[in-house]
């Protein structure tokens, strides 16, 4: 159940702040100018939607359609329900459009680089079915689901008439509706990796989204290079800003896995999206390079 609080302290801008846990993290929503009844209704539906997506897209839940597909699609073609099929189509499109660096089958990559050409599964549009190309393929939508869910909640909120707000998925994927009541954007600070609570980089969100990828907060290198099958041990953070939270999420994963030289090539296919490499040094300074641009020191 979502925790919801309302604030009327500033009569000009009543607020709702709500949170719930899903997809192994915390989902938070801040909405400006929303009343109690509408706010609660929205949160109830938002939570239900995220949980529905979690059931649909999780590879850790044995009862999910994705788990069924993972266990059967090597032996036979498996028909996928419409939304799951569409998600897999999207993932395949992103794979092709990131030189194979976004790959939901990366967890089971072979080390010879063969799979980057072919991907781990083939789709049959006529029958909406999926078949794995090799034994041992497993689809993990972990790098996709949060961005997808975030765009869904954003749409839902807009349909409710919310024009100003922020939706935060575990601090790494954030979408903004409109702008801060006292400014032209929502100022989101990226925390310095080496100095707690210190600002590494400010992001200005206005009807846009951002996603950050890198070594996890616990220090784990969890992103796999689909071309080698090994974990990427980059120390920099990859920040993507742009309109869709989903595209930001996909690109931040792909760029983190991709070698530096490939990153600008990938980004050249995505108009309106900006990628930055952020290096947090031990002395508390930060180096931020916009991919395809010159270095900015702080």
């Amino acid at each position: 159940m979502a925790e919801i609080t309302f604030s009327q302290k500033n009569p000009a801008y009543p607020l709702m702040c709500a949170s719930f846990r899903a997809m192994h993290t915390k989902v938070e929503l801040l909405a400006v100018g929303v009343d109690d009844e509408k706010g609660r209704d929205l949160m109830q539906r938002a939570e239900a939607e995220v949980r529905r997506l979690e059931r649909l897209l999780s590879c850790h839940d044995d009862a999910s359609p994705l788990s069924a597909l993972n266990s059967l699609a090597w032996e036979q073609s498996v028909e996928a329900e419409d939304e799951l099929y569409m998600v897999l189509e999207l993932c395949e499109t992103f794979r092709r459009a990131t030189y194979g660096y976004f790959d939901v089958t990366a967890m089971c990559s072979e080390t010879d680089g063969v799979m980057s050409l072919a991907g781990g599964y083939s789709l049959d549009a006529k029958h909406h079915s999926v078949r794995f190309c090799r034994k041992g393929v497993k689809i993990d939508l972990g790098g996709f689901a949060k961005g997808y869910a975030l765009d869904c909640i954003k749409r839902m909120s807009q349909q409710e008439g919310i024009t100003q707000g922020v939706i935060n998925f575990g601090n790494s994927s954030i979408a903004a509706l409109g702008h801060h009541p006292y400014g032209e954007w929502w100022p989101i600070g990226i925390e310095h990796r080496m100095v707690k609570s210190a600002l590494a980089q400010e992001v200005r969100l206005a009807d846009s989204a951002m996603s950050i990828s890198g070594r996890s907060e616990a220090g784990e290198y969890h992103i796999i290079d689909p071309h080698t099958g090994s974990r990427v041990a980059g120390e920099e953070l990859i920040l993507i800003e742009g309109r869709s939270a989903l595209v930001c999420e996909v690109l931040s994963t792909a760029l983190y896995a991709a070698p530096r030289a490939k990153r600008a090539d990938i980004m050249s296919q995505y108009d309106g999206y900006r990628a930055s490499e952020i290096v947090c040094r031990r002395d508390g300074t930060t180096e931020c390079r916009v991919v395809g641009a010159t270095v900015v020191e702080k």
Binding site: N171, P181, P187, G189, A198, R215, E217, L237
Partner: peptide, 12 residues
């Protein structure tokens, strides 16, 4: 309005 520092890699 001021900066609010909280973004980073996934909080799990």
């Amino acid at each position: 309005m001021s900066n609010s520092v909280f973004a980073g890699t996934s909080w799990a």
